[in-house]
Simulated scan of single mutants.
Amino acid sequence: MSGNTALLVIDVQVAMFNESDPVFQGELLLTRIQKLIAEARSKGIPIFYIQHNSRAGTPLEHGTTGWHIHQAIAPEHDDIVIQKKTPDSFYQTSLQQELDSRGIRKLVLTGIQTEVCVDTTCRNAYSLGYHVTLIRDAHSTWNTEELTAAQIINHHNRVLSWFSDHKSSDEDVFE
């Protein structure tokens, strides 16, 4: 998979780990994404960070402390950072052009928020003809009034199997 593959790290930004309402299993998520990043780097696989930009006064307002990519998985000089304003990492961004210019046709997805940005990006990547692998234990969200974060993650892992292959972060995801 490695020759035309990229790792996408979606919206893993400082505000998502706010002490008053942190993302579900945030530290474990960071550990798993760190492992995937290290594996991708060791194999020369490009890493794309997707960074959400929200309106003024919100935790993900451009340039604020919360907007920055989490320091535990910070980009390095060869990594690509794509700015977005909607749940879809492709919509009105340069992501598709950047992938196409590198001949990338296979995407490995991780990140936040399972039922919003991860879901939307996964579905659109599939519709655009990319082969998608969702790392089933390396995306996360928050509890809602109706469902726990674990229920949301499990549900989306089932639903997104229509649009992606699934692997665990413990597997060789870049084989």
Results as ranks from 00 to 15, higher is better:
residue 151 Q to G: 08
residue 128 L to G: 10
residue 92 Q to P: 03
residue 143 N to L: 10
residue 138 A to I: 06
residue 73 I to K: 02
residue 100 D to L: 02
residue 99 L to C: 11
residue 145 E to R: 07
residue 53 N to K: 08
residue 143 N to W: 09
residue 69 I to P: 00
residue 66 G to C: 10
residue 116 V to R: 05
residue 122 C to G: 02
residue 80 I to Q: 13
residue 113 Q to E: 09
residue 83 Q to R: 09
residue 54 S to Y: 11
residue 105 R to L: 08
residue 79 D to V: 07
residue 153 I to P: 12
residue 111 G to L: 00
residue 76 E to H: 15
residue 151 Q to T: 03
residue 108 V to H: 00
residue 72 A to C: 11
residue 121 T to P: 00
residue 85 K to S: 15
residue 74 A to D: 13
residue 70 H to D: 14
residue 82 I to Y: 15
residue 120 T to W: 06
residue 118 V to G: 01
residue 99 L to Q: 11
residue 72 A to D: 12
residue 68 H to R: 08
residue 57 G to T: 12
residue 86 T to I: 10
residue 107 L to F: 01
residue 160 L to V: 02
residue 69 I to V: 01
residue 109 L to D: 04
residue 69 I to W: 01
residue 155 H to A: 10
residue 123 R to Y: 13
residue 87 P to H: 13
residue 60 L to Q: 04
residue 88 D to R: 05
residue 147 L to E: 14
residue 92 Q to L: 07
residue 103 G to S: 11
residue 126 Y to F: 15
residue 125 A to W: 10
residue 104 I to C: 06
residue 112 I to S: 02
residue 116 V to G: 02
residue 100 D to V: 00
residue 132 V to L: 01
residue 79 D to I: 05
residue 150 A to F: 04
residue 149 A to E: 14
residue 62 H to A: 15
residue 110 T to P: 00
residue 161 S to R: 11
residue 135 I to Y: 04
residue 108 V to S: 00
residue 151 Q to L: 04
residue 161 S to C: 07
residue 56 A to N: 11
residue 71 Q to S: 15
residue 56 A to D: 13
residue 57 G to V: 11
residue 102 R to P: 09
residue 101 S to T: 00
residue 119 D to A: 02
residue 115 E to W: 07
residue 54 S to D: 09
residue 69 I to L: 02
residue 133 T to H: 01
residue 154 N to S: 13
residue 83 Q to T: 04
residue 137 D to G: 06
residue 119 D to K: 08
residue 84 K to C: 02
residue 142 W to H: 13
residue 117 C to S: 07
residue 62 H to M: 15
residue 163 F to C: 03
residue 76 E to C: 14
residue 142 W to A: 07
residue 125 A to H: 12
residue 128 L to Q: 10
residue 59 P to C: 02
residue 118 V to C: 01
residue 107 L to R: 00
residue 74 A to M: 09
residue 83 Q to K: 10
residue 56 A to P: 11
residue 60 L to A: 08
residue 80 I to E: 15
residue 70 H to K: 04
